[in-house]
Design a protein around this nucleic acid. Structure first.
Lengths: 306, 306
DNA sequence: AACATGACATTAGAGTTGCTAATAGTGGTA
DNA sequence: TACCACTATTAGCAACTCTAATGTCATGTT
């Protein structure tokens, strides 16, 4: 039972003729005749009264015709809805990012991206790190942006940048005026740390242990913003990615000092579902994210002079 | 695009599995896989996310699933309605009869017919003779009962009986007391006739002319009932089929006398559309009509004693 | 981390279906 | 009655759809 046959039947009834119905569907009269007969056989009902000219549907045939029209109309609507949905879905980039990179990175890339893809839609969600991974795995986000990304069977990673880690202290702290601080100077220092289950915490712990420095962890938080607030009330010092304290450094609300630990960085990366073909819009969005921070807006055909 | 594929797709979504969907539709997993792929190709949309287990419909796939369910439900309803309509139509006999045979003949045949086909429905319409033919030609009636039936390309005739024609007069008429009347005695008589375009009029005219009798036509009507009324007010005599004046004869409201014209009869017959296969119910109804008037009710297995 | 498992995709070949062209049959009409 | 227009039928060919076998992949386990 196929929809083309139902369409043919509707045309036959509407045009009062099998031949005209056949022509309307660009098939031979024979094919139309056979198709209608088969339809009647499948339904076990006489739909057309062929013993009169012009052809007329029987009472049942007329009822079935009305039903068919509704059916075909419904199908065409479903098809149209599908196409519209596809337009929308394929033009949307769903981004899941951790708080500390979300808005900052987005604001830098949004304008060039939107001018390249004017009808694209970007949806950004800021989440806890493991929620970012979850969102990508569950196909609730097309791309995830997070620190310490780890590839897995279902997740691919594209490295984005490595953020140097710096010592952050209250402006009144004894080390606040220093140009730089050696790791050993943190021995016994009150320390505001990340939660133990975060990769950044493990990276910092490992680096300090390697330097044989022990700090006194006085607080633990799961995000940068709260740690900064704790330092702001002089609860202790911390080690944070430099970009996350850029504004506070400029405003002198927090003191920011390099540490002599070049290997201690926070890698930031993009993740997406492995093996899943990216839509053109998503691929282009990722390319945009990979542009360095100082790239001229407008792409490679920039305004460099000879 | 066929409905079985849509059904398959719905089952696949519902069961979260192509193999289970295939099983539900008693086809191989391969066939189901190909069918779904073809569906996606025809719609140019990714309906299923196969990169996860268990299988999940995409956002578009879910919307299409809902639409499909409604569509299939609508089709099943149409199919069911069709079956119900067929039951009803095939169990119905539409009868068109002229006034003078309609109710009288029906009442005699209805009871045995209905006991043989308890769920059958009989619809009787009493019409003018040419409307009876028209109704049968236009397929508004399955059978027609009328006098002087004529076969044609689209009409078949089954003779039913020949009704003897009798002289009918007012009880006070000079011929009213006669046992029988010779045609010649009608010479110059005031006569209430049928309309000129009716076959019965032509038959009567022909018979009188053959006897070289000329009557004075004072009125013309298109039906028996009105002629009887005219005679009732002593407007003249008429020649009518005997069965149509049976009641008046018994009640002595009209005088009924045989005429010596054995060839002058009104043939009554059944007509139906030629070449049109009769439904069993219609065929059985015709058989019932052809039973003689004195047949025992209850059919051939009657209550005759040894 | 390799392996086992269950599920989907792919492929090739067999069987069926559906189409076209030609022809026969039928209702309406001059 | 013959003709016209339309539908049914037939036969043969092309296209499609199905199945069985095999390949590939995602997931859970040891």
């Amino acid at each position: 039972m196929n929809l083309e046959t139902l369409q043919l039947y509707c045309d036959v009834v509407r045009l009062r003729s099998i031949s005209r119905g056949a022509a309307a569907n660009t098939v031979s009269q024979s094919a139309a005749s056979q198709a209608i007969q088969q339809l009647e056989a499948e339904l076990d009902a006489a739909l057309l009264d062929r013993s009169r000219r012009p052809l007329m549907p029987t009472e049942q045939g007329r009822a079935f015709y009305e039903a068919c029209r509704a059916l075909l109309q419904g199908f065409e609507k479903a098809r149209a809805d599908l196409a519209a949905s596809r337009e929308r879905v394929e033009g949307t980039v769903r981004v899941a990012a951790i708080y500390s990179v979300g808005l900052h990175d987005m604001s830098r890339h949004m304008q060039p991206f939107m001018s390249a893809y004017p009808q694209a839609r970007v949806r950004l969600e800021c989440l806890h790190p493991h929620k970012v991974v979850e969102a990508v795995i569950e196909d609730e986000a097309d791309v995830g942006i997070l620190s310490y990304p780890t590839a897995s069977r279902s997740i691919s990673v594209l490295p984005l940048r490595s953020e140097p880690m710096v010592l952050v202290a209250h402006p009144s702290h004894r080390l606040a005026r220093r140009r730089s601080v050696a790791p050993s100077e943190l021995q016994g220092e009150k320390f505001v740390a990340f939660d133990r289950d975060l990769p950044i915490r493990r990276a910092i712990d490992r680096a300090l242990k390697q330097q044989e420095v022990a700090v006194e962890v006085v607080m633990e938080f799961d995000n940068v913003e709260t740690i900064k607030q704790a330092i702001g009330i002089n609860s202790g010092v911390s080690i944070l990615p430099r970009p996350t304290v850029l504004k506070e450094s400029e405003m002198r609300t927090l003191a920011v000092m390099p540490l002599g630990l070049p290997n201690l960085v926070r890698p930031v990366g993009i993740i997406h579902r492995r093996g899943r073909r990216l839509t053109p819009v998503v691929a282009r969005f990722i390319e945009q994210l990979q542009q360095p921070a100082d790239a001229a807006p407008g792409g490679p055909a920039g305004m460099s002079r000879p």
